[in-house]
Design a protein around this nucleic acid. Structure first.
Lengths: 207, 207
DNA sequence: CGATAATGCGAACCGGGTTTACTTCTGAAC
DNA sequence: GTTCAGAAGTAAACCCGGTTCGCATTATCG
């Protein structure tokens, strides 16, 4: 063993360079109209090297997008329910929204939104997330419930509903950005949406 | 070897023959381990012809599968909430489960359940369903709620949570079939799962 | 009977992704 | 400084899903 990083610095840099080159090409001509050969050539590496850094063409765009609801749940305060932790997390995001790197994010989202392939890829990412969240929910009792309600099925059900909810909030958010709304305004509009979404999760459809 | 006499009847028959050949091979060796060339050869047609009947390898398995939650909601009794209608619908399915064409369905579902590609494809199909359900929910107020709670966002949120819930129930059902459980038993086990899932939707995670 | 459209075919092609077999670069030990 | 192991890079060939192309067969209908 011992392999001492081959200047992990350079590696990360090269990886970033490849991803940025790819995103630029995708933004110019669309995801499907750019071949990986072109990306590799434009980035000055071999195709094999590209696939050494990224497992697939999709990953060139998507590997940054990952969100980690499971981590939010796992790291919550001991007296906080998972839903409360997630609500707080997304409320916090809605306030930070204006600070994000606008250009980079919007270009990426535009590229994703215009490619069915990438949209499907995003959906697939959420699949793994759901499993992770279910595990996190199952880790301890999720709330001071009357009894042991959180078995496997229950955790899976809750995770599925939570992920679906967050997915819809994100879609709404990005649709507003795509429609030309400013990041700040989209962030402000997101806040009440988050509140209502989590209210619905907590109190149910029976109102 | 050219034998083709084709008049609508024969075409449907040929299509069925191709799909059945494909499903048999998939069941024997798994979706990813079978190439379309093999399928075409085993079915006695050219690869081009196969893709003339089916738009993709996935479609060989998936084009039979479809569900329509929106229709269930739209056709419910006037005094019934959407959730009640859906609950009743899936409870009814769990009782009918044993009557379905066992072999064909089980083979198909086992194949789907064992292939991430096909699972993703199923998930993609559900995307359009969510929009349809949201429209159906928005059609009238969903329940005798105190006030007008069902605007666009609310309908979208509810649809997303409902679809995610049903999806999970189906996955669980098919996983059990894939694990070798009989259709009858899987149907029986499905019933309490449906009850709990819709209880969760109605009453929320706050318990 | 002959023309037209539909359908089928083999084969070549395309693009994403993998394998192979060979080089080069690095960094650490002598 | 030289050497040596292995990490990382590369070109080229290959695999597979899917498409395109040019040609052959047939079905139908005037």
């Amino acid at each position: 063993m011992t392999m001492v990083g081959v200047s992990k610095e350079k590696k990360a840099q090269r990886r970033r360079h490849i991803a940025e080159t790819a995103l630029r090409l995708f933004a110019e001509r669309g995801f499907d109209a750019v071949t990986v050969n072109e990306i590799a050539e434009a980035a000055g590496v071999a195709k094999v090297t590209l696939f050494n850094y990224f497992p697939s063409k999709e990953a060139l765009v998507l590997d940054v997008v990952e969100e980690d609801t499971a981590a939010v749940v796992a790291a919550r305060a001991p007296d906080q329910t998972p839903l409360a932790a997630l609500r707080a997390h997304y409320l916090a995001f809605s306030e930070r929204a204006a600070e994000v790197d606008v250009e980079q994010l919007m270009v990426r989202m535009r590229v994703i939104g215009q490619s069915p392939t990438l949209l499907a890829g995003v959906q697939r990412l959420r699949y793994g997330q759901r499993a992770a969240l279910a595990r996190a929910l199952d880790g301890r009792e999720s709330c001071p419930a009357p009894d042991d309600l959180t078995d496997d099925l229950m955790a899976d059900l809750m995770a599925a509903q939570i992920i679906a909810t967050i997915q819809l909030l994100q879609e709404t958010f990005f649709e507003r950005l795509a429609a030309g709304m400013s990041l700040r305004e989209a962030g402000e509009r997101l806040r009440p949406d988050v509140e209502r979404a989590f209210d619905l999760l907590e109190r149910g459809h029976g109102s």
